[in-house]
Amino acid sequence: MKHYEVEILDAKTREKLCFLDKVEPHATIAEIKNLFTKTHPQWYPARQSLRLDPKGKSLKDEDVLQKLPVGTTATLYFRDLGAQISWVTVFLTEYAGPLFIYLLFYFRVPFIYGHKYDFTSSRHTVVHLACICHSFHYIKRLLETLFVHRFSHGTMPLRNIFKNCTYYWGFAAWMAYYINHPLYTPPTYGAQQVKLALAIFVICQLGNFSIHMALRDLRPAGSKTRKIPYPTKNPFTWLFLLVSCPNYTYEVGSWIGFAIMTQCLPVALFSLVGFTQMTIWAKGKHRSYLKEFRDYPPLRMPIIPFLL
C-alpha cells in the first residue's frame, strides 16, 4: 500500500511549517490536523484551516487524503483561524445574560430607577406577564442548547462571544429598562391586545421548539449528516411545506408577539434587527439546500412563505 507525503505551508508566506512522512492514504484531514498539532501545539485542530490552494476553501475534517486531487506528495496550505471557543459555551453565555439582566430590572434592584423604587413591584399585569415570557424564552434556549441542538461545527472564533453578548445583553437591558420602569405605560388596547400578543408568542414558541426537535431527529448524534427536513405529524412542522427555516419564522413571530404585548420600541427594534439577521441566515441555508439536494422542494422560500 502506497503512503503519502504531506507538506504543510503557510498560506500567506509559503513557508514550510511541517512535513509529514508515510501518511496513510485513508487518513482524514482531521487526522492530519492532529499530526500537525504534534509539531505545532500552539495551533490545536480547531484553529487550523487546511486547504489545497492558499486562497481556496477550507477542507472538511472528514475529507480523505486519497480522494483529494493531489499526488502522493501533497501540499496543503495552513491558515490560523485564531483562538476558538465551543458553540455550546457561546450559546449558554449569550442566553444566560439576558435572563439575569432582565430580572435585575424586573425586581428593580438599587441604583436603576431611584431609591424610592428599590425592590418595588409594578401594578401592571402586563409587566409581570412580559417577565414570565422573556424568562421562559431564554430558559427554553438554554435547555435546547444543552439537550436538543446538535452542532455541525464544534467551535467558533473567540471574538464572537463578545459580539454576541453585546447584542443580546445590550438589547435585554434596553428593553427591560423601559418595560419595568415605574412610569411604564400599558398597551393602548389593554387586555385584548395583551391576550392576542400572548397567543402569538406561545404559538410561536411551541412552533420553534417543534422545529428544533424535528431538525434534531434528522441528524444522528456525533454526525454531520444533512438531510432535507420534511413536515412530521406535528402540525407545527407543517411550515416546512413553505419555508426552509421555519425555526427562524417562529422565532421572529415570538418577538413580534412580545413587541405587541409590551408596546415597547426597543423590543420592536430588537425584532427588526433579529429578523434582518435571521433572513440572512435563512437565505444562506436555503441556497445550501438547493445546491446540495437536486430534489429539494421548489415551493419553499427561505423564511416567509411566498415572499422571502
Results as ranks from 00 to 15, higher is better:
K2Y: 07
H3N: 03
H3I: 14
Y4Q: 13
I8Y: 01
L9E: 12
A11C: 04
R14N: 07
R14Y: 05
F19V: 05
D21S: 05
E24V: 04
A27L: 02
T28R: 02
I29G: 03
A30G: 11
F36C: 05
K38Q: 14
H40E: 03
W43T: 12
W43C: 12
Y44E: 06
P45C: 00
R51V: 10
R51W: 04
R51Q: 06
R51L: 08
K55N: 09
L59H: 15
K60M: 13
D61N: 13
D63C: 13
D63R: 13
P69T: 05
T73S: 08
A74P: 00
T75L: 02
F78C: 01
R79L: 08
L81W: 13
G82D: 15
A83F: 03
S86K: 10
V88S: 13
V88L: 09
T89P: 14
T89V: 10
T93G: 13
Y95L: 03
Y95C: 09
A96E: 00
P98E: 01
L99Y: 06
L99R: 02
Y102N: 00
L104E: 08
L104I: 01
L104A: 05
Y106L: 13
F111H: 15
Y113C: 10
H115Y: 10
H115A: 03
F119C: 14
T120P: 12
T120L: 11
H124S: 15
H128R: 09
I132L: 01
I132W: 14
I132H: 01
S135M: 05
S135W: 03
F136W: 04
F136T: 06
Y138C: 08
Y138L: 00
L142I: 04
L146W: 13
V148G: 12
V148P: 06
R150E: 00
R150Y: 15
F151P: 11
H153G: 15
G154R: 11
G154E: 14
R159Y: 15
Y168E: 07
G170Y: 00
F171R: 12
A176Y: 04
I179A: 10
N180Y: 04
N180C: 01
H181L: 05
P182S: 05
P182A: 02
P187V: 14
A191Y: 01
A191K: 00
Q192D: 05
Q192N: 09
L196Q: 14
L196M: 07
F201S: 06
F201M: 11
Q205H: 07
Q205M: 15
N208Q: 13
H212R: 02
M213T: 10
M213L: 07
A214T: 12
L215S: 15
R216Q: 09
D217E: 05
L218R: 13
G222A: 13
S223Y: 00
K224G: 00
T225Q: 12
T225M: 09
Y230R: 02
P231I: 04
T232N: 08
T237V: 03
T237W: 00
F240S: 08
V243S: 07
P246T: 04
Y250N: 11
E251W: 14
S254V: 15
G257V: 11
A259S: 06
I260A: 06
P266R: 09
L272G: 00
T279A: 11
H286F: 02
S288M: 00
L290R: 12
L290S: 06
E292M: 10
F293Y: 08
F293V: 13
R294K: 01
Y296P: 00
P298V: 04
P298Y: 07
P298A: 07
L299V: 10
L299R: 03
M301R: 11
P302I: 08
I304P: 14
